[in-house]
Design a protein around this nucleic acid. Structure first.
Lengths: 203, 203
DNA sequence: CCTTTTTTCAAACGAACGTTCGATTTAATT
DNA sequence: AATTAAATCGAACGTTCGTTTGAAAAAAGG
């Protein structure tokens, strides 16, 4: 029952970790409970016992993910007067937080069964409350009403989200590698592009 | 057998259209062949007869999609000298093309089973050859080697791809609606943000 | 130590899965 | 018109699915 490093990993955690790996790699629907149970070295009925159902794992993943995002993103609500600094700080913490939980993020964004209204609503409400409100909407308050907030906010969220959603695909196309060095510069580079434009970099 | 407007829709096309709708809405794995067959008003064995297998539908979807993308994007290789104009034209045609095939695009990007090497490779090669080479990589040739192409290209692709990948989710969060008016201005707005930065819009 | 509660197991359940099969129907060819 | 080829069907196949069940094991409580 002991795992290296002195940490005790409960059977429930083992199921959860195994599920995250498998859902990330193959998708929720394509992953069977027998496969999760085998990877976690438990019997399949433990999934129902601890999570209520296969879908219950998704619910738990979401609760853990949004709880952690709430924690990471809350730290950044320092009262910066300057939009640029606020945005840079927000981007930095968001990239940091998503990187820490990138498997859960991807699962939540694209593996939630759309016919499960409870899970779908849970996702929307938490995305709204924890990520969008803090990073992509509050930052743009108080500007002109002519501004297309429906484009300008999602443009930034799209840059960042897509990085994590397509993170396994992009290296196959561009040959990029995403190591620690990469993430040292990524947030500010993205912020530069977003705030000042790509031409500033190119010309 | 006749469908309104004089078009003859073959049984094979009916299967394909039904599959696209269902794969888009529920995902590939969560959609069963019986459901596709019922929606197309055929017997399930027709899927195997015409497509070889359930996965054969995905292959056909990819072939159709990339064939159409190749057609739409090819028209934009006019010899513009100016980077800005080239990028604007490329963004415009890409948004137009993706909008026309947005269901197939989403299916291809997130519903291909990762353990099917043939389909995965087919996706990578065609994305590379038809979309990235034409829009996100050729446009940046000839600039400084200091430039992080691994960030600057995917930043633009991410803005646009994520729009279509998350198109059902974003309206639930921001209340945005994506009608024809929206798409009238979207490409140039995105190009503005990308080329000159969001600050230009806000300040 | 005994009793109760909780956890865990393996087997079983009923349903659903994608594919195959042989018969029939339709279309094409001679 | 007869024959051949292609398309279509419904039933069946073997496998897999998520969940339930009762027994056993482990943990907790008095």
């Amino acid at each position: 029952m002991k795992k290296g490093g002195g940490n005790i990993t409960t059977l429930k955690e083992r199921i959860l970790n195994s599920a995250v790996e498998l859902f990330y790699k193959k998708g929720f629907e394509a992953t069977g409970v027998r496969e999760i149970a085998k990877k976690a070295n438990v019997s399949t009925s433990m999934i129902n016992y601890h999570f209520g159902s296969k879908k219950g794992i998704l619910k738990e993943i979401m609760e853990i993910f949004f709880s952690q995002m709430n924690e990471f993103l809350d730290n950044e609500h320092i009262e910066e007067k300057d939009l640029e600094h606020r945005l840079r700080a927000a981007i930095k913490s968001l990239v940091f937080a998503l990187r820490k939980n990138e498997k859960m993020f991807k699962i939540i964004m694209i593996q939630i069964p759309e016919d499960d209204k409870e899970l779908v609503n849970l996702r929307v409400e938490n995305l709204k409350k924890i990520i969008f409100k803090k990073v992509f909407m509050n930052e743009f308050k108080g500007f002109d009403s002519d501004i297309r907030y429906d484009i300008i906010g999602p443009a930034l969220s799209g840059m960042i989200f897509s990085h994590f959603l397509l993170k396994d695909l992009i290296p196959q196309i561009t040959g990029a590698t995403f190591d620690d060095n990469f993430y040292e510069i990524y947030p500010d580079y993205i912020a530069d592009i977003y705030l000042y434009g790509a031409l500033k970099k190119l010309i």
